[in-house]
């Protein structure tokens, strides 16, 4: 559990961070909360020659409402996501998911930027990000780029992040005011990561008909996905228990579901429907 030797530098600004990265010849890794990277380094599964500590960069902090979006700085911790009044009010599914990440120590250190950029297949937050159509704001030496969450997660620990990019913030469109947001997960008994996790943000109109529904699934496939088949099955319908169950039954339809030593593919598919139904009931029941 001793990592191989590495150099360490602190960046005071995004600009400086990008320069330090270029000076490293492109071999450095960003260090924010360290809760994903350091365990890999201790197992020597990752051996970056240099870490650039971005945890002191003020521009990466802050949570603000900007028009019809909420913009969350990359260094925002899980604990802040779980407790911040603006996030709780506008993005309750994100708060609910962040509340269920790891343990208190992890939530106090781990950040939304690190969580999304690391792209663990079983991580909780990507389910919320893909369901709500979040955008990732990435700084590069050639200027900022915006990446939609749905095109960001490519596979286990693989993302569309440009090699020379630094994730600055995540921007979420604010769902309609009538929508409720929840995150339900079936945690692995060892790691606490999601065997299956489902994020739902949904609401009904004055007639009791679903007029907004977004569903994201994590843990089940090699990357988080938006469960559009579930959404289509519900939009414009009354959320009766039968309708919820029928919609939840489609929760595995949009992902390439995979099995592992703890849960086979068949069982994971089944779990997708069970966990989705639990989430839909909480959001719409």
């Amino acid at each position: 559990m001793i990592p191989s030797a590495f150099a360490y530098e602190r960046a005071a600004s995004v600009k400086e961070a990008l320069e330090l990265w270029r000076a490293s010849g492109g071999s450095a890794k960003w260090l924010a909360g360290g809760h994903s990277l350091l365990p890999l380094m201790k197992l020597r599964l990752s051996a970056p020659p240099k870490l650039i500590d971005i945890s002191g960069i003020d521009e990466l902090r802050g949570v603000a409402r900007v028009g019809d979006r909420v913009v969350i700085g990359a260094l925002t911790t899980h604990r802040e996501l779980a407790t911040h009044p603006l996030i709780r009010e506008t993005l309750p599914a994100l708060s609910d998911a962040a509340r269920q990440v790891g343990d208190l120590q992890v939530r106090n250190r781990g950040t939304i930027g690190g969580n999304l950029a690391h792209a663990d297949t079983a991580s909780d937050l990507p389910a919320v990000a893909v369901s709500l159509g979040a955008e990732l704001l990435v700084a590069t030496p050639d200027g900022d780029v915006v990446l939609p969450a749905q095109e960001f997660f490519l596979g286990p620990l693989v993302t569309a992040m440009p090699e020379n990019g630094l994730l600055k913030a995540v921007s979420f469109p604010v769902p309609p005011g009538n929508a409720r947001g929840v995150y339900e997960k079936f945690p692995h008994p060892a790691s606490g990561y999601a065997v299956v996790g489902v994020a739902v943000t949904a609401g009904v109109d004055a007639q009791g008909v679903v007029d907004f529904v977004r569903v994201g699934v994590t843990g089940a496939a090699d990357a988080a996905y938006r469960a559009q088949a579930v959404e289509e099955a519900l939009l414009g319908r009354e959320p009766t228990p039968d309708a919820l169950r029928a919609a939840a039954a489609k929760a595995a339809d949009d992902g390439a579901i995979a099995g592992d030593a703890f849960a086979s593919e068949a069982y994971r598919r089944h779990l997708c429907t069970v966990v989705a139904e639990r989430a839909l009931r909480r959001a719409l029941g």
């Binding site: 197992l43 692995h188 008994p189 060892a190 790691s191 990561y193 030593a261 703890f262």
Partner: peptide, 26 residues
């Protein structure tokens, strides 16, 4: 009874080699 179990694959690799895979009771 419910959680713990060391797993080897057919080549004799310890699959449950960390606390991420081996479920200690909490």
């Amino acid at each position: 009874a419910l959680w713990e179990g060391a797993l080897y694959d057919e080549q004799g690799q310890l699959v449950s080699g960390t606390f991420m895979d081996y479920a200690m009771p909490k």
